[in-house]
Nucleic acid binder design. Structure first.
Lengths: 216, 216
DNA sequence: GAATTAATTGAACGTTCGTTTTATTAATTT
DNA sequence: AAATTAATAAAACGAACGTTCAATTAATTC
């Protein structure tokens, strides 16, 4: 046989991407065979090579577009305000929302880096570093303004990002907690972690609304 | 050829374990071939099968012993005190120290779970859950005693563990920060995150020693 | 020192892998 | 309706995979 009735390159390519993200997230890149992927799409393995020249090209494309999406999402969500607390809140909310929405793709982008060539790895890491730098800048600005208490900006940024991204490991939509509840919890944990104070002069620390503590 | 002079089963098995942890951490379980592992040990691939009946048996052994080591380490480090702050501090310090010391093995145990059979996966997850439950208990006790401010015990435990374990991703011994500095930072971040107060009646929140804030 | 056990090699097995090539048919253009 | 282009199938390629087996030698036991 050959070309099938109703076949459409655009649709097939989209189906390949979708199936690949899901399969790689579940089995791992090395463990997923091109034949398995093709079967999931409903096509023969050879057909995949019309859209991606090699298996690694497929992986790289998925990762690059994921990272580009993350940077684009943050650009769109980044607030105009200069207030570090507002900016940090926006960063956390965007990060949680984006990663919950794209659990599988995040898994792929975080776990399969070692399957990329050196050059492509560098390219992905550059995007990741740019994204992390946004958080470091917020933390530094907040520390300099005195609204955050942070020992080490770089360390804190890494700790926060790993804490937030970790949500994809245990969170399943539709279970005990809603996305809004999870986001609210991570937001208040973040604010407490960085020792944030509400910046409108009330000097009230986050997450202590039910406590009654006086600083010595 | 056959048996080589000076060959010793005990030493070879230890060398296989060590090389396997390092290779799997670097390349991934699926990507590491038995021939590659054998070459690293300085032996032919067939020799590996004297010590581990299959590749998956090797992986499982490494993971099980890693998890057993983690549980043992915590049992040894667990303080007698009932004070939640003391217990949480001990948990954090033990977790950071253990994971920095065994970066490669942790990588393997966290990333290669999907290569285990269902039964063995369950076995590993059971150990992991037991370890995490220790943290949840500390958080719950602290929340009930009023020394921690925690929205959701389970969520907070997961967030903390992911934050702490994430240290292995970016931390390299001998670079900018010492192990002691990193541990101290994670400890203070943790205490702020859970809204801990020093438990000897001074009611002073952690990490705010330089601030001057009054709770409304 | 002979017999036994421990440790390893080298070769091979069948399977699966990513990928290429060629042929074939559907859809589109002329 | 003929010509061209797009999309696929079917078959095959060599290489690498995990694993097994028989042979061989070192170390140990008797």
């Amino acid at each position: 046989m050959a070309r099938t009735t109703g076949s459409d390159g655009g649709k097939t390519e989209a189906a390949v991407r979708e199936a690949a993200v899901s399969l790689i997230a579940r089995l791992g890149y090395e463990a997923m065979s091109m034949r398995q992927l093709a079967a999931e799409v409903g096509v023969q393995a050879a057909a995949l090579y019309r859209y991606f020249p090699t298996k690694e090209d497929l992986l790289f494309t998925l990762m690059r577009e994921h990272m580009e999406g993350l940077l684009k999402a943050w650009e769109a969500a980044r607030p105009a305000s200069a207030d570090p607390v507002t900016r940090l809140a926006a960063y956390v909310e965007n990060h949680i929302a984006f990663h919950i929405e794209r659990r599988h793709a995040t898994h792929v982008s975080n776990m399969e880096l070692r399957s990329l060539s050196h050059e492509r790895l560098t390219q992905i890491l550059k995007m990741r570093t740019a994204y992390e730098k946004e958080l470091r800048t917020i933390l530094r600005d907040g520390a300099e303004a005195g609204v955050f208490q942070v020992d080490d900006t770089g360390l804190t940024a890494m700790a926060l990002i790993q804490m937030m991204t970790g949500v994809i490991v245990w969170f399943r939509p539709g279970e005990r907690l809603s996305v809004a509840e999870v986001t609210a919890s991570y937001l208040s944990m973040t604010m407490r972690l960085v020792g944030a104070t509400i910046s409108h002069g009330t000097a009230r620390p986050f997450g202590r609304r039910r406590g009654a503590l006086i600083e010595a």
